[in-house]
């Protein structure tokens, strides 16, 4: 009786874990975790943590954009703007730190050859066309995943996060000096969030499709 109860509990736990894992999927997440050894769920969990930080950072950054949408040129910038940028920076720093761990982890464990084979054989162009997606963004993703280079893709994602951090730090520095960054810098903030998230999201689309 006890044994059956244990089996039932274990079975329920496994089902619960698999359902729960279906949710983490906004950016760069492969639901099957294409690494060779048993650290898969740990890597998947780290990617989810990083995506959480990025989404929270984006939320703060968009509040900041709203703050300056109505600001007076060369006028008073509210303390809220600096606070929002500070929070956005802290979140991107966390996302980056976590992703560096993912890369270190992934480098050690190697890849699942079956999964890599699927990534190589996937028709990125057709999938993009059929789903009305951006060919330009998907071609950036395919440049890595089409070669089965998951780690290279992760490294590119961290490169995107670093760019984002750089832009946020420039804005923070200007705000600390009591001025608003030039329009080109501010515009690049929106663009970098969009491109970072779309790059990750398109990869997720592929991973979930395989």
């Amino acid at each position: 009786m006890e044994k059956r109860m244990f089996k039932l509990t274990l079975f329920s736990a496994i089902i619960a874990v698999s359902i729960v894992y279906l949710h983490g999927f906004w950016a760069a997440r492969d639901p099957y975790d294409p690494f060779a050894r048993k650290n898969n769920s740990e890597i998947g969990s780290l990617i989810t943590d990083s995506a959480v930080e990025l989404l929270q950072s984006a939320s703060e950054a968009f509040q900041f954009m709203n703050e300056i949408e109505v600001v007076e040129p060369n006028g008073l910038i509210s303390g809220a703007a600096l606070h929002q940028v500070d929070l956005a920076i802290a979140k991107v720093e966390d996302a980056l730190k976590i992703f560096n761990e993912v890369i270190a982890f992934g480098s050690q464990v190697g890849s699942d050859e079956g999964r890599i084979g699927k990534l190589k054989a996937f028709n990125y162009e057709r999938y993009t066309r059929e789903n009305g997606l951006s060919q330009e963004t998907m071609s950036l993703v395919a440049a890595y995943l089409g070669k089965g280079n998951v780690l290279g893709f992760y490294q590119c994602h961290t490169g995107n996060l670093k760019k984002l951090l750089h832009i946020l730090n420039m804005i923070k520095k200007d705000l600390s000096d009591g001025k608003l960054s030039e329009n080109k810098v501010l515009g690049s903030l929106l663009q970098q969030y969009n491109s970072t998230m779309m790059f990750g999201n398109y990869a997720s689309l592929v991973f979930y499709r395989l």
Binding site: F25, W26, S45, V52, L55, Q56, S59, Q63, N66
Partner: peptide
């Protein structure tokens, strides 16, 4: 900004 927080809710549903 709100939508990103919604996506965050979906993402942390994993945990």
């Amino acid at each position: 900004s709100e939508a990103f927080l919604f996506m965050n809710e979906v993402e942390i549903a994993e945990h």
